[in-house]
Simulated assay, not measured.
Amino acid sequence: MISTILTLFFLGIGLFSIITNGFYSISSEGIRYARIQHKELPQDVTDLNIKIKVICMFISGLFLTLCGVSRMIGYSSHASISLITMSLFSVYSVFEALYYMYWRTFGFMSISIVLFLFIFLGY
């Protein structure tokens, strides 16, 4: 049951990140829309930082989707793929939180670390 929920989580979050951040990358108003979605960043962040965030979240979406698909088809080492994916995502969120030192980025980091620990403990 929990494994199914994690698989759906990886697929849902991954596909959402790919679609939204892919749209932000190609849209002329993408930066404005990305600022609205990524409210975990400080309001005074530069357009370049928003672009970097969009690229990082797009790449994260690819990894999360691939992880979800590998779990869905029953790939034999899906636990290690899940662990690697969440490790990378957690490291990214820690760097983001330390860079911005903003309370919302620390919330994002906390959620990422909790999910990493959840997978690390064997779910």
Rank of each mutant, 00 (worst) to 15 (best):
T105H: 02
I18R: 01
I81D: 06
G107F: 12
G61S: 02
S82L: 01
M1S: 13
Y24I: 04
S70L: 14
I52H: 08
L8Y: 14
T65C: 03
F58Q: 06
L41Y: 09
L8Q: 13
I84E: 09
S82H: 01
Y100V: 04
E40I: 08
G74R: 03
L8C: 10
Y75G: 07
S80D: 15
D44C: 08
I2A: 12
R35H: 04
F108M: 11
N21W: 03
V45T: 14
M57S: 11
F108D: 08
M72T: 13
S70N: 08
G68P: 02
S112G: 02
Y100S: 03
S3Q: 15
L66E: 05
I2K: 13
T7S: 11
S90G: 05
G30F: 02
S77C: 08
L6S: 04
T85Y: 06
V45K: 06
G22I: 00
E29W: 10
G107D: 11
M1W: 12
F116W: 08
I113E: 00
S3D: 14
G68D: 01
M72W: 14
C67G: 01
K51L: 12
S25T: 11
Y75H: 11
F58H: 06
F118A: 06
G61A: 01
I50K: 02
Y100N: 08
M101A: 13
G122P: 01
V91L: 13
G122F: 02
Y24H: 09
L88K: 03
G61W: 01
F120V: 03
A79C: 10
H78W: 09
M72K: 12
Q37N: 09
M1K: 13
L121M: 13
M72S: 15
N49P: 03
G107M: 15
I59H: 04
I113D: 00
D44I: 04
Y100L: 04
S87C: 06
Y24W: 07
D44V: 05
F23L: 14
S27K: 12
L62V: 11
L41G: 04
L88G: 10
T4M: 10
G14E: 00
I13N: 07
I81H: 04
F120M: 11
F116S: 00
H38I: 03
I36V: 10
E29M: 12
E40R: 13
